[in-house]
Design a protein around this nucleic acid. Sequence first.
DNA 1: CTAAGATACGGCGGACCCCTCCGCTTAGCA
DNA 2: TGCTAAGCGGAGGGGTCCGCCGTATCTTAG
Lengths: 194, 194
Amino acid sequence: MRADARRNYELLLAVAAEAVAEHGADASLEQIARTAGVGSGTVRRHFPTRHALLEAVFRERIDALCAHAGELARRPDPRAALVDFLIAITRAAATIRGLAEALNRGRTEGVYCASDQLAEAGEPLVRRAAEAGVLAPGITFADLSTLVTGIALATENDRDPGTTATRLLSLAMTGFTVTPQEPHTTQATFGTRA
Amino acid sequence: MRADARRNYELLLAVAAEAVAEHGADASLEQIARTAGVGSGTVRRHFPTRHALLEAVFRERIDALCAHAGELARRPDPRAALVDFLIAITRAAATIRGLAEALNRGRTEGVYCASDQLAEAGEPLVRRAAEAGVLAPGITFADLSTLVTGIALATENDRDPGTTATRLLSLAMTGFTVTPQEPHTTQATFGTRA
DNA sequence: CTAAGATACGGCGGACCCCTCCGCTTAGCA
DNA sequence: TGCTAAGCGGAGGGGTCCGCCGTATCTTAG
């Protein structure tokens, strides 16, 4: 990679990060190019699709989440590990503008896909929780990921999305309906916060 | 309202419904005008904002959902009533392109708001379920609505969004984690499908 | 150190879109 | 039938995305 190319790449990444933080997933690419003092063709060359740019912007963040998953995998309590991971993702997706979009949309292409990377890191946690019997049967990481990004998307224009999103997540984890057959389980079930 | 205005309004509504069904919430207004054989100013005059157009397009559908809620309110089982309503919303939001967007985004303005209308119809069901003790305490209809639209948004580009969405909803209803303290409740809790 | 070749850059042009405004048509009333 | 104002159409300005190509710049071999 040529020196100037690398320079532009890094510059664009920094500018894009700021733009996305401010305007979300559909920040103007043209504006990013302008701010970086670079031709619009250049941003297109480095990031062929908007999704590619988003993934590049969030790469470090995703890596961090995956690393976190790696640590959690060594925790003694499988349920707590999975829950902590989901909370971490939820908080990130709800807090960092554009991240939820990046994780949800465009999981079609091959190459590199942020949500795939996250899935790879999260699946062991799911498996371990399932083996320990603390997860409803048949649940995949994809299910949980979809749920989490959905919650993040829906709370996007809430004030304080972070808290709202984690609140909804905890509802979904413990369930928000009570089966009338076993009313005595109510307290025990809902008393367990994430 | 003048006769020609009304004519155009209805025509635009029909065309818009088709366009939204095909291209989702961000169908081209320009294209709608063109298809209707009408100036772009005309569509803007009848529907000042994109959200207004979406709400108009989905008005009947929302009315139907609200009517359904009215019927369900007379059902003997409060939990089943609420659950049925949520399933109905979920299925609609996940199946009908653009509806989830319309329900989630733009709940800022006053005037008429589709999600408010839905909330008004759904709140009695929530209240009744809460009084019957089959709902986790502190849950509002807004919570459930957000959750449902989030699920719909996240499953949008899934193949067969309807089934995926309702599956995720049922997970959230009964909870996907099991508290290790009471392992015997597992079967009972997850055996109850929506 | 230099010159040739590869590589990346910039920005132009086309297609599309949203939005506003204004002159013209025409429906509806008297 | 004629008047009036409501409604219409579309041009124009600003913005975006995208592909392409002439050119400037970096790199490396000589």
